[in-house]
Nucleic acid binder design. Structure first.
Lengths: 348, 348
DNA sequence: CTGTTAGCGCATTCAC
DNA sequence: GTGAATGCGCTAACAG
């Protein structure tokens, strides 16, 4: 049977409060009795009952991780990093994959509140107002919140982001330096701050170069591979750019695959640049030029911020901005205009 | 402030036991009072406190998911499927990424036990004896266990697997049918039943074809991309096969990348076949021929089995064997022997 | 320094 | 059918 604090107390010849004290390092206890209690605890393999202590207002050592899609390599790698650091710090992770579904979002807030998590990490935006109401509830309750790779100051909370504007800028700058002008953008559903900022950086670079943006080359429906393929196909059907900037690697891969289907060579006929630098970027053919996010560090940092907050070591909220980097591989190349391409374009 | 069962009782003009009864559908209550209580609960937005009920022996609606590496697309996709079905069934998932580290494994068992999870899904083997001892503890406690894609009858538990032997057989058969004989195997760390069975199927096909297995072409160090690259490079340095069967897609990708570094064309100079059919298989260049696992279904099934067990609807343990399928893409091709290759081989 | 006691929110005998 | 009382395991005053 499971050991309780009473068993330990009895075996150690003390009262339960003494045992509780050595467990929680509260109050003062003589070295000898503490020693004794510790010993007994080990002998009995005593494990405090989390629910009992949670019931009295203590922490649960659980944090919720809200993610749009754990199967997306970016979030998979992020989750791994988060889980690892959390474990080191003594927290378990409840994984919530919202699928960008507002209802699931709202539901999860409620579940997390009910389960009394110590804190919540958002790796997803919150869009619908119902979720928002549920969130407010959580905020009121004083549950620490941190946001990662999304930066919308909904409520006072810590934030870890990369400089998305700079990321978009780097991407565009790279394409422009290769001579491209007809550059398309493939965004997701247009709702996240990440996309918006990347796009902002993109436009800034285009502006600086004096290149006008062709609105018909701005496309986006969602974040999945399928979404990307559809959006890319729709775009190609109307107009074919010489380069594409996709706001994440999955979408960039979609572009490359669609291009292949259309007989467009990457990077010969079309340059493609992604964002995230996930494992996909290494795998895809050709290897993807992309803007790298320090995923591992982001995961680590966000957990650390949250932990500090949970432990009450923080007086004020902070925002940590990490720097993206351009990783040049083989999916981008200098603009090349010759008959062959023109011909191919004509056909399309 | 958080509503309790007392608030509801008071507002409904009944006692807490009555409220408890309508919540748990136990005992008999008059239709009218049940109605009334239900109303009040809705009005007050009452949410039962999980910890309090867990304390009285009820379930926690949490299940633990033990995975070797959530960043590996196979486990990422599996986790997504598991999470989705679990959510539908009212369970939250505590994500445990063990990194195949025995210490983390052991630690997680202890954590999960402490957190009083309703059940545990193993998507990883258990190797070291310490973990084993911790596991025994869990089994004794009667916590439902299910195992996925691993089949070692450690204890009575439900199992969802694919026919790994058949999978290995299919892979080898395919390569053999293309004329290959010098076929290498890239396994992981050699510890999991999945690998062993796939290898068994592989050998069976080789046997049937009367091809002798070259032990120097059996390699493996671990499951990561890095591991795969090292193992492949080490193998090529000694001997270059005409085809490679890798026990998962990540390792297959590693082979392809290493081959590229060595100037070996895939599939011209070297055919490569993987296992899992994750998103990587579609992305890699060339698209990977692989043995497909019905990941989504596996995740769904395993949760359903576990849920039944948790709800006590199962008298006996069961084992569900799903069928793998060969997915032919472009990383495998008929054996080709000509001077160009021989020459290249000579150089190596 | 240490023991006693009163809840935390809920499920569950017992009585009525 | 319904209510009062007890305990789950632990923390936090409150007394020594």
């Amino acid at each position: 049977m499971k050991k309780t604090i009473y068993d330990v107390a009895e075996a150690a010849g003390v009262s339960i409060s003494t045992v509780s004290r050595v467990i929680n390092h509260t109050g003062r206890i003589s070295k000898s009795t503490r020693q004794k209690v510790l010993e007994v605890m080990k002998e009995l393999d005593y494990q405090p009952n989390v629910h009992a202590s949670a019931l009295t207002g203590k922490r649960t050592n659980i944090i919720g991780l809200l993610t749009p899609d754990i199967a997306n390599p970016f979030f998979g790698e992020l989750a791994k990093s988060v889980e690892e650091r959390a474990d080191e710090l003594g927290f378990s992770i409840i994984m919530c994959s919202t699928d960008r579904n507002p209802e699931k979002e709202t539901k999860y807030f409620s579940v997390l509140r009910q389960k009394n998590v110590d804190g919540i990490i958002f790796a997803t935006g919150i869009e619908n107002k119902e979720s928002f109401a549920a969130l407010e509830d959580i905020v009121e309750k004083g549950i620490p919140l941190v946001m990662i790779s999304q930066d919308r100051a909904l409520f006072p909370m810590d934030v870890v982001v990369i400089d998305d504007v700079m990321g978009g800028y780097l991407a565009a700058k790279h394409l422009i330096s290769l001579g491209h002008q007809k550059i398309a953008c493939l965004i997701g559903d247009g709702s996240t701050t990440g996309e918006k900022d990347r796009l902002k950086g993109f436009k800034k670079a285009m502006d600086e170069a004096g290149i006008e943006i062709d609105e018909s080359l701005m496309a986006g429906t969602g974040f999945s591979l399928q979404n990307g393929k559809e959006a890319a196909a729709a775009m190609f059907a109307q107009k074919v750019p010489t380069a594409v900037f996709a706001v994440n690697d999955v979408l960039a891969c979609a572009v490359i695959q669609t291009a292949r289907e259309w007989g467009l060579k990457v990077p010969g006929d079309l340059s493609v640049i992604g964002f995230d630098n996930t494992i996909l970027a290494e795998m895809i053919d050709p290897p993807l030029t992309t803007v790298s996010q320090p995923i591992e560090e982001m995961g680590r940092r966000v957990v650390e911020l949250l932990a500090e907050d949970i432990h009450g070591k923080k007086k004020s909220k902070s925002k940590m901005i990490l720097t993206p980097e351009l990783v040049i591989r083989q999916s981008t190349a200098p603009l090349r205009i010759d008959e062959k391409i023109s011909e191919k374009r004509q056909q399309l």
